[in-house]
Computed example of a mutant assay.
Amino acid sequence: MISIQELSKIYTSKKKQVIGVDKVSLDIQEGEIYGIVGYSGAGKSTLLRCMNILERPTSGKVYIDDIDLLSLSKKDLRKARQSIGMIFQGFHLAMGKTVLENVAFALKAAGKPKQERNDRARRLLELVGLSDKADQYPAQLSGGQKQRVSIARALANDPKVLLCDEATSALDPNTTQSILKLLKKINRELGLTIVLITHEMEVVKEICDRCAVMEEGKVVEQGAAYEIFASPQNALTKRFIRTVIDFHVPEELLKKSSGTIVQMKFTGGQAGDTVVSDLLQNYKIKGNILHGNVDYIQEKALGTFVMELTGDPQEVGRAVESLKTILDEVEVLNHDRSADQPVARAE
């Protein structure tokens, strides 16, 4: 659906060149929700604007639905953009127009007759849950309602792609959740391909099928959202994930413990297995769960448990080695102080 090939965007000032996007390549599949995450200045919004040529790339290729956008004339590019909807953090609504008029405006620009524009706009307002707000003005709406109007307007010309630039950043957590649910509903009901720009990993966790992490204009990691959360490779990705799933164990707890503290990560079906109870039954040790959490990414479980194991040091060591053969990730955070030979730290 969307293919970005070696795309770069360089801004030139009198004194120096600034690289906004640095040789980025992405393939976004039809019908998926794809997240692009990064801190401010990472280049993610510039990349998004290059996708519909609001920013013209310095080099590289942009294909949407097998159409090379950079090869199009201005007239053909305007026509191609009708299949690409876009929503922004700041809503960008016409304050002097009603909600209905805001949604219908995009259809007017496309040359649709008035009755068709209004009928289509009303159907879209019903889709986003604002059919009762058609005659109100943006100033009368909450932030979440304004964003719903923006979404309806972006859908006016029945696009195949919806680009979302920090669409939830200005909203409170509850409103953010409602907008994400709406985007997921639109994705499922309309089969729309959605690209989300965000600095919040929670957004990726909630609705994205796949994602890319950007830093200094480059994509430093990309893949299925679940795999990114379960096994992040890049240091920046790990920092982002810690904002959503915190595996931190307080240092005081480690100092006070006299046993061996082990952190275990459960992925997929492992989260429902009886690994911990089997461990305590099979080895002559005692276990105390210090921390446990299970998250769901794309309806797949990702669990983390931290346990203190006590008993004969050799038996504890055998139990830890057994865990390593079962689970993808096992890390010893603190060793039994009574052990003559500490258990080797997991890789």
Rank of each mutant, 00 (worst) to 15 (best):
I2D: 03
Q17A: 07
E32D: 09
Y34W: 09
Y39K: 14
G43H: 04
K44F: 07
L70H: 05
L72A: 01
K74C: 00
H92T: 04
K97S: 13
V99R: 04
N102P: 11
A106F: 02
A109Y: 08
D119R: 14
K133P: 05
A134N: 08
D135N: 14
G143F: 01
K146S: 02
Q147C: 02
L155Y: 09
L155A: 02
D158T: 11
D158M: 00
C164G: 07
S169P: 07
A170E: 14
D172P: 05
P173H: 06
N174K: 15
I179W: 12
L182E: 06
L183W: 07
K184F: 06
I186Q: 08
N187K: 11
L196Q: 12
L196A: 07
E200R: 11
V203I: 15
V203E: 09
E206V: 04
D209Q: 07
E215T: 02
V219E: 01
Q222L: 03
G223F: 10
F240Y: 09
I241Y: 05
T243F: 00
I245W: 07
F247P: 01
H248D: 15
L253S: 09
L253Q: 14
S258M: 04
T260D: 09
T260N: 10
I261C: 08
I261N: 10
V262T: 06
Q263Y: 04
M264T: 07
K265W: 05
F266L: 14
T267D: 12
V275M: 03
D278P: 00
L279S: 02
K284T: 10
I285L: 15
K286C: 04
G292P: 00
Y296D: 00
G303W: 04
T304D: 01
T304W: 08
F305M: 15
V306M: 02
P313Y: 07
E315S: 08
S322P: 01
L323I: 09
K324M: 14
E331I: 15
E331V: 10
Q341S: 07
Q341F: 10
E347D: 11
